[in-house]
C-alpha cells in the first residue's frame, strides 16, 4: 500500500524537478543567446560611432590646419583662423577624397554664427566635432561635420 501511493508521489516530485530544470535550461539558453547577440550588436554600434567621431575629429583638425593664418615668411599661426582661407576651402574636393556625401564647416562665437559652408546632402547620420580657435583675437567655435 505504502509503495504504490508513495512511489507515485515520489515520481511526481521528480517530474516537477525535471520540468523546472528544462525551463531553467531553456531560459538560460535564450538569455545567453540574447545577451551574446545584444552585446555583439552593441559593440558594433559603439565601434562605428567611435570610428565616425574620430574621422570627424580628424577632419576638424585638417580644417583648422587649412584655415589658419599664414605669415609672409611661411610661418603659420596655430589655432588662429583666417576667414578668407575658410571661404576658399574646397569642400567638394575634400568629399571626393574622403568618399563621403556631406561636409559642413561652421564658425560661431558668443553672438551667434559667423560663417557657414557646406557641400552635398546630409544623410541619416552626420558626425560633428567642435574645436576652439581664435578669429580676429576673439575665441570662436569651429564645427566640422561629415556625413
Amino acid at each position: 500500500m505504502c509503495r504504490e501511493t508513495q512511489q507515485s508521489r515520489f515520481r511526481g516530485y521528480f517530474s516537477v524537478d525535471a520540468a523546472l530544470a528544462l525551463v531553467i535550461v531553456v531560459f538560460a539558453y535564450a538569455s545567453f543567446a540574447y545577451l551574446a547577440s545584444h552585446a555583439g550588436a552593441s559593440a558594433d554600434e559603439e565601434s562605428r560611432q567611435i570610428s565616425n567621431s574620430l574621422v570627424s575629429l580628424r577632419f576638424s583638425s585638417f580644417l583648422v590646419e587649412e584655415a589658419i593664418t599664414k605669415g609672409t615668411e611661411g610661418h603659420s599661426s596655430v589655432n588662429e583662423l583666417d576667414l578668407s582661407r575658410l571661404l576658399d576651402l574646397d569642400l567638394k574636393g575634400m568629399l571626393k577624397e574622403m568618399a563621403k556625401s556631406y561636409a559642413k564647416v561652421s564658425v560661431g562665437g558668443r553672438e551667434g554664427e559667423i560663417f557657414s559652408k557646406w557641400e552635398g546632402e546630409a544623410g541619416e547620420e552626420v558626425f560633428c566635432s567642435a574645436r576652439l580657435a581664435l578669429l580676429n583675437g576673439e575665441i570662436v567655435r569651429l564645427e566640422a561635420c561629415l556625413g
Binding site: 575629429l57 566635432s129 567642435a130 574645436r131
Partner: peptide
Amino acid sequence: PQDFFLCSDAAIVFSK
C-alpha cells in the same frame, strides 16, 4: 575624445 582636443585648444587659445 573631442573633449581632449577642446581642452588643448582652450589652453592654446588662452596662451595666444
